[in-house]
Amino acid sequence: MKLTNEQIERYSRQIILKEVGGKGQEKLLNSKVLVIGAGGLGSPVLLYLAAAGIGTLGIVDSDKVDITNLQRQVIHFTDDLKKEKVLSAKEKIEKINPDVHVITYNTRVDASNIREIIKEYDFIIDGTDNFPAKFLINDACYFEKKPYSHGGILRFQGQTMTYTPGNACYRCIFETPPPKGVIPSCSEAGIIGAMAGLLGVIQASEAIKYLLSTGELLTNKLLFVDILNLEFRVINIKRNKKCPLCSESPEIKELIDIEQPICKISI
């Protein structure tokens, strides 16, 4: 694919970066990224990846836009209330950048469909809101040998890590989901929209770096962010020899749905 004059102009501010260049921009336009969850994390991820000219963006979400989403899910507008999130997100992306081909999946990922969905993509973003989905995405990406970015947020804090085949996976840190009721969700404990935005933007930049094969990825590292105290901390992580998924003698040999509804706790 050769860049058109309009594309050279549109992407000029990133094409002039030596890490991108014309070749890199062509790579981005030929890339496919899947964003699972078009919510607090998925919104900034989708907006920035669309603007950067990722050629194909897949969006998975089965929810409709709710008024409580609008405080942080910035791809959805007040006019979109009750609209399917995948449709609302697709409309915005197409307005930002007609170069982007959007594929929508108005569904939830589960063990029966996730491998089929992710195998078409070069990089996957976990923008989900619950632990069964987070573990499922990790397991599916491991089995399909796909790189992905994990993200989790709560209140004024968040964490993110990047998985690529051969490096530490989410289960190397957290072997299993937490028991029910231990970790609250954002709807229970609250979330600052800017926290979701910050974390999502880091996830988007991980995808871009991976696609361009440039810079340092957040592999074998976990970034912890606290914007209340403005603390950024990177914790080095090693592959866990006893990881139930990616060790030499794993307990998990095939993809299964994890029966753990999101936790409830009173705070």
Partner: peptide, 13 residues
Amino acid sequence: EFIYYFGGGNYKH
């Protein structure tokens, strides 16, 4: 290092 779980979301129960 203490590493905590972070989920997130607006999941409806």
